[in-house]
Design a protein around this nucleic acid. Sequence first.
DNA 1: CTATGTAAACAAC
DNA 2: GTTGTTTACATAG
Length: 733
Amino acid sequence: MRTSPRRPLILKRRKLALPCGNESSSPARDEPDGRGKGAAKQEQGRGEEARDRVECDTQKFPAGIKIINHPTMPNTQVVVIPANADIQSIIEALTAKGKESGSNGPNKFILISSGSTSRSPGARAGQQQLSDEPSTAAKGAGSWGKKNVGQKEKRGGSAIASSGSSGSPGGARDNSGSGEATSGGLDNSLTNIQWLGKMSSDGLSSCNVKREMENENQTPKQEGIKCEEDSVASSSATLWQESISERPPYSYMAMIQFAINSTERKRMTLKDIYTWIEDNFPYFKHVAKPGCKNSIRHNLSLHDMFVRETSANGKISFWTIHPDANRYLTLDQVFKVSQQKRHTLELQKNPGGVSARKTEPQSARRKMKPLLPRVNSYLVPIQFPMTQSIVLHSSVPMTQGASLNSSETVQSNKQVRIAPKVSISPRASPGFLSLLWLPLPSSFQCRQDSPAFTNVSCLVRESDSLFPAPSVRQKRQFTALKSPLRGVSDTLVIKRRESREMGRSRRKQHLALPCSEEPVLVLPESSGSDSFKLEAQDLPFLPETQRLGNVSQLSCSQEEGGPFKTPIKEMFYKLLVSSTPNKAPPATPPLGGADPWRLAPLAKERSVLDFSPVRTPQVPFPSLQENLGFNSTSFIQSPFESPRQLLNTEVNDMVSGPLTSSPASNSTSSKQASPELAASGLPENRSLMEGLVLDTMNDSLSKILLDISFPGFEDDNLGIDICWPEFKNEQYE
DNA sequence: CTATGTAAACAAC
DNA sequence: GTTGTTTACATAG
């Protein structure tokens, strides 16, 4: 897997090797250092103390593992894993544990890394540079990757990094542009797919996306093919051929995004989109009917996330992705589930072993796996006491001073010619989801004098709609963006749309409240610092979602008349923003407030979910949160006295990694946040890190983003939001 | 019901 | 013919 600063949005699901016995097939055994299960066991001896605190039987787990029950989420436990632990073993153990427990016991585990032992404190100062280079993963000596990156993985990383025309170039570019404001956190993060590669023999990380796709098309007998370079070479032709006849599992919307995001400027002409898709998905070149182009056009028009811009001379139309909607997904970043399961099923259905896909009727072929699994979002609050200062190094550091490039593009040159798509309900529609990704501070620091405990809530976005791509619903919002004021004709169009919406047109449906496509920031953005004036493209290292947050915030301060001058915007300007739209508002309104459509979800969710108290100090509109449905959750007794303890207990040198304690910070943290943090403009008590959620009920492993907040000056609540990004998609087979 | 795919009508260029 | 918008319908989940 590539180690791009952009976190992989979609993790390929792999079947977890159950502890029972198939570990032999686990790549873990391929570890050069010989670590693996054995190593994990060796570590057990060190974990007695921690184990004693653990509420569940951790005897199966290596030392340093800390497990606490989730305070509010039934059958859910938070597992803090030391960097040097054998993740696979842990996962296996957890899986076994979950299986044992079944539905009546802990069957969902939130895994977070407690840090690394190999990195120097300096390295983790949030200054470590992240690179797209595969080597980064390897050198990410850090935590998860270190142990899991085997030769295969490394090779795979390379392959991925160099794969396709889509993500790699962009990723590299972005990265270079980001300077040092990147974070090694991703590499070291639990979500580093490097280590996921260990989990299955078919080497996720060693296959680039295209190859994945090709593999997907393989017949069962071909599945054994690894991404070994030689074998790849020998099979590539076959795979490719198969891929030609195999429809990609991506929706048009997704493919269009891939295409657009594959370009440096994140824009593409229709023709180029056609070409890109055809080039990257031969199916559309060789098999699909010409109608696919119609479909592409249809999707471009249909989805508001796609914004058409015209060149300065007005002769060329470029399709772009609305920054608020763009997750900057590229083909490289998307890993789809392997087809083994499908093939297995097919085999079951067709003992003949012949791929049924090739013979199945078109209607059947149409059936594709959704890019993202649809899941309902829910908030999982986690709380644990905190008495000691802790420094959490965000896996995704925040930069500042970035320019609003996309907005610039949008604002200046772009001539929107299309009729404005009027967003009917600027007001937060109740249906919107819940989380909004925040810009991340490069480090997190919790003052020693901070409140007594921390709340951790998880916003779990369980969707199978893998695609983060904003749905049409969201689009509505974007619609506004597309629409500059127009003349009479526009008015007419608007009327048409309105009338349509009155009826039951498709648009209308889209306008309906969205459920939860995109995570929406639960916590209000910080302070009025304008350091958030970041542009997505200037934040390559930021996960799309996070950038999304930034961008959206930006959008709040967009200049009037810009693409953002939409009904929604206007409304917000009036309601929340000062009269200086083109500048970051002195006191940036909560993101949620700025983006009604982001808030909506909260409201909706609130009715269903029990949100933990997630309050953030320095919030301009604290009340908003409350209005968002956050209610206090009872504090749950934790076996650990502090997050630090929880995270670092028994982990001697856990000075690096996503979650670490920092002596230095201990001494200085009492009053001020880290420089990065301060500079970031994020509240001192905010930080993000990545984690994973292992759901043994459905054998799924999902990546999550934890938005961690600790008690602030004025606030007495701490919170960690574990957000589900986009990728909770597919399940292990 | 929603998301998606497909086809097609229509308009503008 | 291309591009873009929109409607309608079908299908899967």
